[in-house]
Amino acid sequence: MSKEILEVDQLSVNYGAIKAVRDVSFDIKEGEIVTLIGANGAGKSTILKTISGLLKPANGEIVFLGQSLAKLTAPKIVAAGVSQVPEGRRIFAGMTVKENLQLGAYLRKDKNGVEKDMEAMFKRFPILKERQKQDAATLSGGEQQMLAMARALMARPKLLLLDEPSMGLAPIYIQEIFDIIKSINKEGMTVLLIEQNARQALSIANRGYVLASGEVKMTGSGQDLLNDPAVQKAYLGG
């Protein structure tokens, strides 16, 4: 039984009068891949933004390695060890690939470690090495996704939050992205994965939570959810 890395307890988040997330509870154990699946507008991104400190919870607790995140600012949460690859990638256009990666390591003081990790990223994503001096905006969608993932890893997080990494990508890239997620998880990274591509997400996840209208409707192992008729009907195209 490995220990809990993140515990979200009865979380509610509002946008003014809109209740986007209601009483959501879930947890992630060290070394796991946990996925939240759900349709458009289910509240998935809202949950990730709240964990990262971009939004403040109306109610509930978020505990990361024993520390409450609910009142911390986004930079403090990064410093605590939580990095996010946001929906739509949000790479910094007008800056080079290398500068984007350097920004990922913004809070790190260990210059040598950063250099080493940069090399490691270039090894894992050879295309980024090739394009390191190029404006990041000129990369293709799949390359930008890899950059966004590498950028988040440059912070050396203990927990990686991924918001729809396969969104808008060609099938070959989708496969590659999921392979990368699997391999960084094998190397020890704990991952919280949000996906609309539920089949792929559940098949690599240890556990999953099904979200609808801001609430958790179902939870189980990735395999169980894949085989669940209700899940198949609603999220796996029958």
Binding site: A74, A79, P86, F92, M95, E99, L103, Y106, A155
Partner: peptide, 23 residues
């Protein structure tokens, strides 16, 4: 400089810059 990079990233995208740990 690192400060300059932070300035440029904030100019591009506040939220994404926050996710890098930039104040």
């Amino acid at each position: 400089t690192k400060t300059g990079r932070a300035m440029r990233s904030v100019s591009t995208d506040y939220d994404a810059a926050s996710l890098m740990g930039i104040n």
